[in-house]
Design a protein around this nucleic acid. Structure first.
Lengths: 235, 235
DNA sequence: GACGCTATGTGCGTTGCCGCGCATACAGGT
DNA sequence: ACCTGTATGCGCGGCAACGCACATAGCGTC
């Protein structure tokens, strides 16, 4: 493991549960390794599993048309994928794609539904996480509307660094363009600007955050707002 | 009541409940008349009531800064305000503002929380509505990013007409600009274009939808997507 | 060491919306 | 009839991002 990386052994949502509930939930889980670009869920299909990333992370992507899409959520060890199951519905319009390879815990859909029904603590935690997702979606909608690409890119890098637990991670400009819903060239320009400012360094898919402080200043307030929301609902 | 208006006596979420659950829920409600521009909830305050519009409607607005904001949700008789209460959290980043004056049912926060706990049917319905709100938020984020003002305006008019249960309703361009997160002049241009196409007629705050068919064609697919989501989760 | 793939960077004309300032027009009150 | 406030319309210069096409640069492969 790279020296800049400290892998969490646990998923923070599960870890926050009382001992008994956590133990029971973990018994319903299996450990899996998620590979980059794995599609964990595609709209229109049945949701087979809920996922609790430990040292991996997952993008929630809203498809618009063949060429365009927009990332509307990012899930790492602070969260989970599968809230639709907890809400008792059979699908979601969002694609779930592995963005950072690594280990995760997963639960079969039926098992997750049963666990949520039997554990009040898990149910409450999941509900609070849903509240966070709602807040994050609203924040993303506003951010996407009002903020320039460079600021949105800075926010994205900070969010990703948090979930990668590393200052270096792999991500191409092409991929960033899809996440931010802009042209690749737009990313080139914004990333070049951040690099010239000494905040990041990158080359052929290797992205390194050099100065978190500076990135925060370059980002819009949405990064901080997201963290505040998480703190309020789940902190 | 204008002839083009057919007021629903009920809120559709409540109406969908089994007789017993609905009756019990209604007993926890009081009837109120919502006035235009009433602020039902402001971020940072305690949420005092849940609202079930019958023939009124409510905007969910994400504030960005003093000058800018963005509507991320619209709640009429097909929905409710107060899902945060059901999720067991104490607040939301979204302002709730009355956009269409009219009658609604409301429940004190504590009563609503108790009802959700005691009625499985209500709980399931609220959960499904939350799933819809999540889908609508994601749709709005993508729509706001990719679609031009004219299409977004058309979508907004269709959504509002559905909830106003009337082809005429009051809305100024200034207000529309705040909802769509654009300049008032941008609305002037887009609305003028729709009017020249014979799809709408408006003057000094009186907006009339003349041709729903044409408006749908002028709008992006997001209007249809929203309705499909609602149908899937609550239909 | 040539080849090909992927990743990144550049140029150019276009567009959708911005900020700002101002002009018109209708409505209601006195 | 006048005045004032609100609603709508228009012009101008500017900017961020667009679409498209092409240029460079690293890296693996045979």
């Amino acid at each position: 493991m790279p020296s800049n990386q400290r892998a969490p052994a646990f998923n923070r949502l599960l870890k926050s549960l009382p001992e008994r509930d956590m133990r029971h939930a973990l018994e319903g889980c299996e450990s899996v390794d998620l590979a980059f670009a794995d599609v964990l869920y595609a709209p229109g299909t049945a949701m087979a599993h809920a996922y609790f990333p430990t040292n991996s992370f997952i993008s929630l992507i809203m498809p618009v048309d063949a060429a365009s899409s927009l990332e509307v959520g990012l899930i790492g060890d602070e969260g989970m994928f599968g809230i639709s199951l907890a809400l008792g519905v059979d699908g979601s319009p969002l694609r779930a794609v592995v963005q950072g390879a690594g280990p995760a815990l997963r639960m079969e859909a039926a098992v997750f539904v049963r666990e949520v029904a039997r554990s009040d603590a898990l149910h409450r935690t999941v509900d609070r996480y849903i509240a966070f997702q709602l807040a994050q979606l609203a924040q993303t909608a506003a951010c996407t509307r009002f903020h320039v690409v460079e600021a949105r890119l800075a926010r994205w890098l900070l969010m990703t660094q948090d979930r990668a637990h590393a200052s270096t991670f792999r991500v191409t400009q092409e991929f960033l363009a899809l996440m931010l819903g802009v042209r690749r060239v737009g990313v080139t320009k914004a990333a070049g600007s951040l690099q010239r400012a000494g905040l990041i360094r990158y080359s052929r898919g290797d992205m390194t955050v050099l100065e978190r402080r500076g990135l925060k200043a370059a980002s819009c307030g949405c990064y901080k707002s997201d963290r505040d929301s998480y703190q309020r609902f789940l902190g």
